[in-house]
Design a protein around this nucleic acid. Sequence first.
DNA 1: TCCAGCATACTTGTATACAAATATGCCTGT
DNA 2: ACAGGCATATTTGTATACAAGTATGCTGGA
Lengths: 221, 221
Amino acid sequence: MPITSARNTGAHVVYAELKRQILTLELKPGERLKEPAMAAALQVSRTPLREAIRRLISEDLLEQQPTGGVVVPVLDEAVISELYEVRAAVESLMARNACVKATPEDIEDLRGILARNAALVEFADDAMQQGMALHAKIAAIAGNSWARRFHGQISSQMERYRHYTNSTQERRDQALEQHRELVDAIASGNPEAAAGMAFDHVLGARDAAVRAISGASGAAS
Amino acid sequence: MPITSARNTGAHVVYAELKRQILTLELKPGERLKEPAMAAALQVSRTPLREAIRRLISEDLLEQQPTGGVVVPVLDEAVISELYEVRAAVESLMARNACVKATPEDIEDLRGILARNAALVEFADDAMQQGMALHAKIAAIAGNSWARRFHGQISSQMERYRHYTNSTQERRDQALEQHRELVDAIASGNPEAAAGMAFDHVLGARDAAVRAISGASGAAS
DNA sequence: TCCAGCATACTTGTATACAAATATGCCTGT
DNA sequence: ACAGGCATATTTGTATACAAGTATGCTGGA
């Protein structure tokens, strides 16, 4: 039995590596992928490389050009807003469902994660990352695999925009406070309140990000 | 210039054909795909066929088995409920955004679509299909490409479950009435109301579907 | 100097060949 | 008769070969 749970085929390895390079911007937005060179660099033939590329295209982490080339999608500030919005919708749904389905033990777990986050708040370099474990747990409680799937795709996309959405200490403290409120709402057993709270919090993060971006680009005026 | 807008490569044609066969259940759930036979049937080599298969896997319209085969996913009644829920979340977001962004002309268009649907209500064999044009227009107004993307994926998935969710005349009339309410809510300029209405309507459809399924399977009791 | 047209080099998409892994069926022993 | 194990056949994953399309740069002319 292999150690890795995923199918350890070459195409999968290439997919993971390529995805990493895209999310870290090691592959620069706008850059065109040339298969022969890439295949040589990754020590595989073009066949598994192409398989990985196609998969990334269908996740919108690569872009197929009409003429036939493949490029890393350009960073477009307008889509950040869109991503936050769908994330708000999905997390709102998960909060609602979690509220209905959570057992007392689940609530305990959530509070435990909160406490750990509070202890680490000054070390986290990113409010998003800080909340990861919390959202994962909420998603698990909500138990909707499609919501989880979409949430994962959105997270991947947003990863590319981390430079734009880097958080300040203030923002991080606020996020922690909002997470506390969210857990309280889930614990309270009022699905509507939990859903609304999750939605508003993410939209608040969107507004902060949009302000940060327009502030940075328009600072000279 | 080619007639088709998509890149007319063999892999794309195979993808479209395979997707069609999956959504119509021409390829039966649980069936295993054997590449050589399939390639021969579709008159292409295994290379573009595999490309199409991989794409379908990443859309969850095919399933990769741990051992290495590819099968058509089994129909699982439990996921219908999940699909309705995420659809509710996405449509709710689109209704909210549409409410904010709609111009008077947009509202006119929506009412026009409603009127056409009302005229055709007795011919539509499916409440989902009836509302297709309406939702497409709302999505266009909302202008969130990720929401549109997810909505499309959800629609594809649900297509496979049409047998379970076939609508009655009564259900169709109710849908039409709900669509009217939804358009009114969007026109009223109250985003929260529009969002809530869209959410509740889809969840209502979910409940109807769940009732229909459990009613059909548990009728003998 | 600048542009059109062409030839060349490169890239992509597809087909085929091959090796490793998996499934299938048969045979033997109890 | 049934289970275990081996041999065969099929299937998948990868590499390579080739054809068609696309971009690049060069030459000649105005």
